[in-house]
């Protein structure tokens, strides 16, 4: 979470929860942290987290189970895979743009990607 990245905080929360669900870190039935706990933990207002969670409900990723909290819904694998692929493409887009701006050659870029890949 960053307050200086220019991306609204509630969007950052959404992006992170969405990635966790699509990536399988948050599975079907798992409860999100309570609104108030997450607000306190991230040092943001309650309404900021509420907006993010409500948007995730609207996207069909989680459900507000009254009295229990926000629970992760079963994920459509095809949708999740597409979302993960899209994230990869967006990342590559950014890397290529940055490489061109820095005049990093194609071969050099691929070498760097290779090195990073092997580090994992």
């Amino acid at each position: 979470m960053s307050t200086t990245s220019g991306v609204p905080l509630y969007e950052q929360i959404k992006t992170q929860v969405r990635a966790a669900i699509h990536g399988g870190d948050l599975r079907d039935g798992a409860l999100l942290p309570s609104l108030r706990q997450l607000a306190a933990q991230l040092r943001v207002s309650i309404i900021t987290v509420t907006r993010a969670y409500n948007d995730l409900v609207a996207e069909g990723l989680v459900a507000n189970e009254h009295g229990r909290g926000f629970a992760v819904l079963p994920v459509d694998r095809a949708v999740a895979t597409a979302a993960l692929q899209e994230r990869v493409d967006r990342g590559i887009d950014e890397v290529v743009t940055a490489a061109r701006a820095a005049q990093v050659s194609r071969d050099d870029l691929l070498r760097r990607v290779e090195r990073q890949w092997n580090q994992e």
Binding site: T3, S34, R36, Q37, A39, A40, R43, V44, S45, I46
Partner: peptide, 25 residues
């Protein structure tokens, strides 16, 4: 924020520093 962990709790505070509102109110 810790006080606000209980959903039955409410805070009303005054300030003339607007910057304080954004991450709390």
């Amino acid at each position: 924020r810790e006080f606000m962990l209980d959903p039955g709790h409410t805070v009303l505070f005054s300030t003339h520093i607007t910057a304080e509102l954004d991450d709390l109110a």
